[in-house]
């Protein structure tokens, strides 16, 4: 799960509306996919996430041209329908329902449909929140190249047992290993190329798994 910088705002009209709600401590309207700002948020997130699922790093938007900056006019996204496999996900599910902050920018990510479905309303722990300022995947995560799964980083020696347990729990909640078999193929092919002395094409998805493996194998 890559670190995500959400500071680049293209859907400025939405962001102004969201900030006004927050500043005035108003309840957000109920979350619905037909809301006028829904597509603006989705495409701004795709722009920031490079068309990848925020948690699994699977490519879920068919065309990178869909989130090109030119598709925003006066702070609104103007392009038509995009082909994608994602859903707008509320990191903390309580903010979607119990507390009406359904449209809070900081709580939203684009993720693979199935991952969002599986995560549902499971409670979350911000120890693994990709846009947290001090989140560093290489400090918190390790990648097992045989099982092709992420797990808590033991080898750094910096994490307590409690933190290890919290991270492993969140790996499950966020479905980071859901894409295990796709990721296995993609990462293995690139690592194999390196082992044969071939420089593979730059990874377009699953970068974190590839980079940790590369470092672990000293390639």
């Amino acid at each position: 799960m890559r670190k995500i910088d959400k500071s680049k705002i293209l859907s400025a009209v939405y962001k102004k509306w969201e900030e006004a709600l927050e500043n005035n401590q108003e309840h957000h309207p109920q979350y619905t996919a037909s809301h006028r700002f829904h597509k603006d948020i989705v495409m701004n997130l795709y722009h920031i996430q490079g068309g990848l699922c925020a948690y699994t790093e699977m490519k879920i938007l068919a065309s990178e041209y869909d989130y090109d900056e030119a598709n925003w006019i006066k702070g609104r996204f103007k392009k038509g329908k995009s082909k994608h496999l994602g859903q707008l996900e509320h990191f903390d599910p309580k903010l979607k329902t119990d507390y009406p902050k359904s449209w809070l920018w900081d709580n939203l990510f684009m993720v693979l449909n199935e991952v969002n479905h599986e995560k549902a309303d499971k409670p979350t722990d911000s120890i693994l929140k990709p846009d947290r300022p001090d989140y560093d995947p290489y400090e918190l995560l390790d990648y097992d190249f045989e099982k092709h799964i992420f797990f808590a980083n033991i080898k750094s020696g910096k994490l307590s047992q409690s933190e290890i347990d919290r991270i492993n729990k969140m790996i499950d909640v966020l479905g980071i290993n859901f894409v295990k078999d796709w990721r296995k193929k993609y990462v293995s092919e690139r690592i194999k190329a390196l082992e044969f002395g071939i420089i593979p094409d730059p990874a377009e998805e699953y970068m974190t798994a590839f980079e940790i493996t590369r470092r672990n194998l000293n390639l």
């Binding site: 097992d144 099982k147 799964i149 797990f151 033991i154 492993n168 499950d172 290993n177 078999d181």
Partner: peptide, 25 residues
């Protein structure tokens, strides 16, 4: 595409963690 269920996935994460602990701790 996926493991049969989350139980297996979680146990694989547990196994990877144990192996890493044995190797690095």
């Amino acid at each position: 595409k996926n493991e049969p269920n989350n139980l297996r996935m979680n146990e694989l994460v547990k196994l990877a963690t144990l192996e890493s602990q044995l190797k690095h701790n």
